[in-house]
Write a protein that binds this DNA or RNA. Structure first.
Lengths: 134, 134
DNA sequence: ATTCTATATGATAATCAATCTCAATAAGAG
DNA sequence: CTCTTATTGAGATTGATTATCATATAGAAT
């Protein structure tokens, strides 16, 4: 595994963008200063950095994956309207895993807890619109 | 909302395929007997049936969505190798939600708990391969 | 510093899942 | 049976990601 400048740029972008960036956002950010970096390189490095544990891949169930450089245990909230991603502090995975009956069909090694709902921004804009209607 | 034969076929396919089918699998199954049904119709009806609560959309974080006709509260296990989906009985969402500190940034209305690991089939084939190597 | 070689890159095509478009069809109310 | 409107089929389109492959380069060995 080589420490290329592209890899450093990808990692730096996820940090600079301050949490939860998509591959597309990383691509835009990197190409601002290094216009020749390929999108494939962005994806390849996001993968590699995830495998080495330097980044976390946040699956959101719909659309693009988001990436997080905050690798201490925590969870995420995904807004069902705008699909923005926010941190939820705490570690609920272990509690769930400990209360789980062991399965004979498969070896459960982890559990993903993702919170959903509506973020304050979307909630506010909904209220604004219903106000406007009467 | 009309009760078209296509909608019945889609629902029946998810049941016949016995849990966790993808849109693609539903399409293949339906077109066995009704070759003219369009893929768009499969997707449209899977959506509609999910909205009415007759089906559940199982997000797996990677690849296609799976659909489940078992609508009583339960969770899912996703194998990280073959990405097969299995049921995990119980309802851990409420327990997690109740132990959660209320957020001021967003209204959390639900939480998704998905278990990951390696299924017995994949585990066995891994062992077989390492046996073969020595 | 120079050479070497496997890994990484850039450009782009290909794939995969899902959605959109729109004329034609058909549920189901009247 | 008629009418209205939701639904359909076919295929184009989008969006996210992966694959391909000749070229470039990181880093180890000289």
């Amino acid at each position: 595994m080589r420490n290329t400048i592209q890899k450093k740029l990808v990692y730096a972008a996820v940090c600079d963008l301050n949490m939860h960036a998509t591959a597309e956002q990383v691509f835009s950010h990197v190409t601002l200063t290094h216009p020749t970096v390929s999108k494939a390189t962005i994806y390849r490095n996001l993968h590699q950095l995830t495998e080495t544990g330097e980044l976390i891949n946040i699956g959101t169930f719909h659309g693009a994956a988001h990436y997080d450089h905050n690798c201490h245990k925590h969870h995420h909230f995904v807004c069902e309207k705008c699909r923005c991603v926010h941190d939820v502090q705490g570690d609920y995975s272990n509690a769930v895993l400990q209360s789980l009956n062991p399965s004979t069909e498969f070896d459960i090694t982890d559990c993903n807890v993702t919170f959903t709902g509506i973020c304050k921004t979307c909630e506010k804009s909904t209220l604004d619109r219903s106000d406007a209607r009467g």
